[in-house]
Structure formats: C-alpha cells, structure tokens
Computed example of a mutant assay.
Amino acid sequence: MQDQASSLRLLHAQALRAPSFAFLGSSGSGATTLITELAVGLAYAGLRPLVVDCRQGQVLARYLGVPTTATLESQVVSQGGLDEMMTQSRQGVTLVNLFARPDQRALFSAQLWLRLGSEFAALERDAGVLLVDVPSPVLDPVPSAVADNLILILTPDAESLTAAYATIKRLSNTHGRQRFNVLVNRVQHMEQARELFTRLASVASEFLTVSLRWLGFVPRDPAIRRSQALHRPLQEAFANSESSVAFAQLASMLPQWHTAETTHAGTGFMDMLIAASRDWAEQEKGGGQ
C-alpha cells in the first residue's frame, strides 16, 4: 500500500509541469530556427508551447517577430519578475528569456530564487511542452544538464558530426546523460539524413555508453531564409513549403519524444536551473573537486 501511494504521488508530481526539451547543435546548425518552427507548429495544434531562451542575443524573439524582453540575469538588479522576461507571439507561442551567465545565476538570493521559481512553475503547469534553446555546453552546461530530454541537431556540415560527438561525450561523462535524441537538419533527402545519423550512432556506440534515438529530418529549404528576412515564422509566411510541412509533422510527434532520464519529476525547470548553477559554481571554485 505504501509503495502504491508513493507511485501515485510521483505521477501527480509529474503532471504538475510540462516536459522540457533542450535543443543542442553546433554553431549554424539551425537549432533556434527548429525551436521557432516547432513551437509555431505546436501552437497551431493547440498544444500551448512555452519557449525558453537560455542563449545570449535574443535571436528567438527576432525569429518569432516579438519585442525583446528583460533577461533572467537582469532580475538581480530590477527584480521586476517574470512579466518583464515574457512575451507572446501572435501565433500563440509564449517566450520567456532565461538567459544568465551561470556564475550570475549562482548569486541569486534565496528570496529571488523562490519568487521566480514559483512564478515560472505556474507557467509550466499551464504549458503543454517546454522548448529550450540552450548555449553550448562548453560555455554553460547547466540548461542542457537539467532538461528532461536532449535533442541533438545534426547537419551535413563537416564539423557537425565532430561537434555532436563532443557534446554527447561532455554531457555523458560530466553530467551522466545517456539518452540523446537526434534530429537531422538541412539535408537533401531521407537517405542523407539516415546516413548522418548512422555515422554518429556508430562512433558514439564504439566509445561511449549512450543511447541515440532517431527523430526525423528537415529538408534544406531556401524559403526559411526568406521567412527570417520577413521576421515571420516559415509556417506563417510559406505554409506550403517543403520544410514547413516537415515542421508541422515533427511538431505533431514532439510530445511523444518525451522519455525523461532525470529524477526531478516534481521540480520546476527554473528551480533546477538555479540549484544546478550553484552546484556548478562550487565545483568551479573547487577546481572540479
């Protein structure tokens, strides 16, 4: 009876927040574009996406065609709360800017942490899914490390395979992550996408104890650049383009990709982000000991 009650409590805790998906890719891999388009596809399907920007530069705001906002790092000074960091696109995508350098997140007071964590938890309960644009783990590994699911972006570019393997190795060896989902971007056809995935899976399985899962691919499409020049998502500007159709199909499948390997079922993303940043700062201070 005790075990059954414990299981019910765990299921209830898991239902309190939406699953998070961190998108990682080498420079120029198109991760931010993928997040933008998947979020729009989810919004069109009525699935209430919450997009979390953990990268510097506010590129997501530009791609979604919304005004820039305050960042998480600015809260140390302004303390205006989540409203200052949040906006919504006309397609129904909620965007929250959680960019802050890891050393700055570690300096948040307990009161600020509690307030922001509580405000963000309310957003998570209302959302269907969290899409997180994360920085390179070399610069800041924390947002990737605390996400429920990791989506690795692979492209035909020469350095993409090397960068993807390095990311897998870092997150596996340093943060214990073992499950990686792979989405192939900017390819000519399915065969090219499958060949890239197979190469990465072969190298990873030879040297690391990790699991890679194929998610799908997005074809190369010049319409994407045209939509970005218009500051409009592809699915709004060029709904019938090849990539637009692919994004819509992938968005419909995205909720089924959730197979979390973390053990933070009842803890919100913001709470995990700040707590892990404090741990990271302590490790850095101690030289990783």
Rank of each mutant, 00 (worst) to 15 (best):
L34Q: 11
H189D: 14
F21H: 11
S243R: 08
L254I: 05
L254A: 03
A5N: 04
T94P: 00
T68W: 00
F269K: 00
N185C: 12
T174E: 14
V134Q: 01
A31I: 06
S202N: 02
L10I: 07
F99K: 01
L16N: 06
A45H: 08
V134E: 03
Q283P: 03
S7W: 01
A251Q: 04
A5V: 14
Q188I: 09
T162E: 08
D271M: 12
G268H: 03
P137C: 09
R101L: 14
T167P: 02
Q256P: 01
F207R: 12
T167D: 05
E236R: 11
F108C: 08
Q283I: 08
T167M: 15
V210Y: 07
R232D: 02
P19H: 04
I151F: 06
N97R: 11
L107Q: 13
R62T: 14
H258Y: 02
T32D: 08
E119I: 07
L82H: 05
C54Q: 11
A275W: 15
D53K: 06
S27P: 04
P135R: 12
S227P: 07
N97A: 12
D126L: 14
A13Y: 10
P156N: 06
P233D: 07
A281T: 04
F269S: 03
V138T: 09
R90F: 04
Q178C: 08
V203Q: 00
V66Y: 02
L230S: 09
T33S: 14
T94A: 02
V76Y: 02
H264K: 12
Q192T: 08
L196R: 02
G30S: 09
R177N: 06
Q75R: 03
A276C: 00
A248D: 05
L139A: 15
A237D: 05
D148F: 06
E84D: 10
D271S: 10
Q283K: 14
D133V: 07
W214S: 09
D53V: 04
V77C: 00
A201D: 07
R225H: 08
S243T: 09
L60I: 13
A260H: 01
S144D: 01
F120E: 06
L112Y: 00
A276Y: 11
P67T: 03
A39I: 14
Q88I: 05
S136Q: 09
V96P: 05
E191H: 05
W257L: 11
S241D: 10
L152R: 10
A5D: 09
V52H: 07
R170F: 12
V52T: 09
